[in-house]
Design a binder for these strands. Structure first.
Length: 572
DNA sequence: GCCGTTTTCGGCCCGACTGTTTTCAGTCG
């Protein structure tokens, strides 16, 4: 069984949970959690690194001990120390911690005093009124246990597109309150993370009390979790949690930085502050009791000697070091985008005509649009055979003759068959401007086979862009198992490109893989996979992901004119 | 358990809200 990075991260997180319940040194616990995050966000496979004999201690937060533990996990699939710890801290206890209101200390007490190890036992104890008798517990906690058991657990994440709808709703709602000045939805939403666990809303206003009241009375609120003078927390009907924080204007920048996170980035920034004798919190930057910055976000960075760092970069993935060296990327913006390479029409599974898609693309200021309807293997979508594609080519030629300042690119979304061949013959493919190629079937091939299948497809000289390179659907379907590093190396050698599919269900490439593509010098096509005219606006999600992957205009294929792109499309 | 231009030991980010307390621990972000 190959050990994936997520397996290692899970083991470390579980170990950290149990250590926490056991009352271990909190910094040791943090070390395991940091390591879990580092491994989970690694572009390469840690298992491969071990096999290749690479030095794991070069990774941030991984020392000699953790490197050895990673090696053990890779070789044996488990961690002996975790098994040992599970001997006196039952592994199921980590599940109890997922209950709101129950952290490591209370779980420890429940286990020690009442012998509780499972959710079932917890429920029984609560029903018998045993929990409220414990020191540090009360009726409220007991009640909460009974209500929450079997409910949605902590840590469920929603797609960015859904988060966006919710965010827009609350901003509209809060704008109606008199005295509200700035409103910003911070957190991972502002960092444009592909999924969001909760929404952090920040306001400046003249009347905190009325804003808080308005907030908890929002129509989509299911339950008020807490309500204070400057901070309130609610659970929405959709199950997602939303926090509101009101801060004075003079603290707005510091609060925005604080609530944008990520946590790891914040901690790193504050450590820089500590070294300079500064204290940084959501109210400002302080030297002793004196505030030296905080009104604007830029001031916080300046106080620790850094230029402004874009929210999408704030993951402590090296952005602080890059900022220190003066080497922050100038991130691509949606204004840089000059066209879209992936769009469908109603000839296959889209909803609008060729002409309608073109009008929509022109309305977005684009110079070109590649029409990439499905090919024949994708029968469910009435994919094109050679004859229909030939007709389509003529149709586009006629349309282009009528257009000025805009080019419809002749293309198709080819299916990469199980054996690695493409599902239309070269004689028609050579008539096209470009192709996007993707996997739609046989997701479950073993890693080696899947990788070689795609590599074989890339050998076809008509293969230009690998579309949605891992096939994942966020929260629905895992990526197929493929060696992305080999795919990228092959793409670079052959002069192919990778798509960053901007559909909010896909966002495929991931942020980590996008960064990897950049580091390997591969240009990325940010595309929407539009199936209707309005889908062209998914470009904003693609851009967000691209920015999280450190892409600059230079790195993006469709931030160029069609004339420039044609030069790049010549396969080596 | 990690880490180092205050280095190999002694640090390790910071505050709000709640419930259970009677001054604060625990949880959460």
């Amino acid at each position: 069984m190959p050990v994936h990075n997520t397996d290692i991260a899970e083991i470390f997180n579980q170990f950290a949970d149990l250590l926490e319940i056991d009352g271990a040194n909190p910094f040791r616990i943090r070390a395991y959690r940091n390591a879990a995050r580092t491994i989970a966000s690694l572009a390469q496979s840690a298992a491969d690194m071990v096999t290749e004999g690479k030095d794991l201690t070069e990774l941030p937060g991984i020392g000699k001990d953790l490197a050895q533990k990673i090696e053990e996990i890779v070789k044996t699939g488990t961690l002996s120390q975790l098994k040992e710890l599970e001997g006196h801290v039952p592994p199921q206890l980590s599940k109890l911690m997922k209950m709101p209101g129950l952290g490591p200390k209370r779980v420890h007490t429940l286990h020690e005093k009442l012998g509780i190890t499972t959710l079932e036992e917890l429920k029984m104890a609560a029903e018998k009124g045993k929990i409220s008798q414990l020191r540090g517990f009360g009726k409220k906690i007991e009640q909460m246990v009974l209500e929450e058991i079997g409910q949605v657990k902590k840590g469920e994440r929603i797609k960015l597109s859904i988060a966006e709808e919710i965010a827009n709703g609350i901003v509209t709602h809060l704008k109606k309150v008199e005295g509200v000045k700035e409103i910003e939805v911070a957190g991972s939403y502002r960092r444009r993370k592909e999924t969001v666990a909760d929404l952090d809303v920040l306001v400046t206003c003249t009347n905190e009390a009325s804003v808080m009241a308005h907030f908890v009375n929002y129509e989509n609120v299911e339950k008020v979790l807490s309500k204070g003078e400057t901070r309130s927390s609610v659970q929405l009907r959709s199950g997602i949690q939303m926090d509101l924080r009101a801060v004075p204007e003079i603290s707005y920048g510091a609060a925005l930085h604080y609530f944008t996170g990520s946590k790891a980035h914040n901690i790193a920034i504050r450590m820089l502050g500590v070294k300079k004798g500064l204290k940084i919190n959501e109210y400002g930057v302080f030297r002793g009791a004196r505030r030296i910055a905080g009104k604007r976000e830029e001031e916080v960075f300046k106080a620790v000697g850094l230029p402004f760092i874009e929210p999408e970069l704030r993951e402590n993935w090296g952005e602080i070091e890059a900022a220190q060296r003066g080497q922050l990327p100038t991130l691509v913006t949606i204004k840089d985008i000059r066209g879209d390479f992936h769009a469908h029409t109603k000839a296959t599974d889209g909803h609008h005509s060729l002409e309608e898609m073109v009008v929509a693309a022109r309305a977005r200021g684009y110079e070109y649009l590649a029409i990439t309807d499905h090919s024949k293997r994708v029968t469910m979508a009435h994919g094109f055979d050679m004859k229909r594609l030939a007709q389509r080519i003529k149709e586009i030629d006629r349309l282009n003759a009528k257009l000025s300042g805009f080019t419809v690119l002749k293309s198709v979304e080819l299916d990469i068959l199980k054996d690695g061949s493409l599902d239309l013959p070269d004689e028609i493919l050579k008539e096209l401007d470009l192709t996007v190629c993707s996997v739609h079937y046989n997701f479950n091939l073993p890693r080696k086979e899947q990788t070689e299948r795609i590599l074989r497809a890339m050998d076809n000289p008509h293969f230009i862009i690998l579309a949605h390179p891992t096939g994942r659907l966020i929260n629905e379907r895992n990526p197929y198992d493929v060696d992305m590093e080999r795919l990228m190396e092959a793409a670079r050698e052959r002069g192919c490109f990778l798509e960053l599919n901007g559909h909010p269900d896909r966002l495929d490439l991931s942020d980590v893989h996008t960064k990897m593509a950049k580091d390997m010098g591969i240009k990325v096509a940010i595309s929407t996979d539009a199936h209707r005219t309005s889908d062209l606006d998914y470009m904003r999600f693609g851009i967000g992901q691209a920015r999280r992957g450190w892409l600059e205009r230079e790195d993006v294929l469709n931030a160029r004119s069609w004339k420039e792109i044609k030069q790049l499309l010549k396969r080596k």
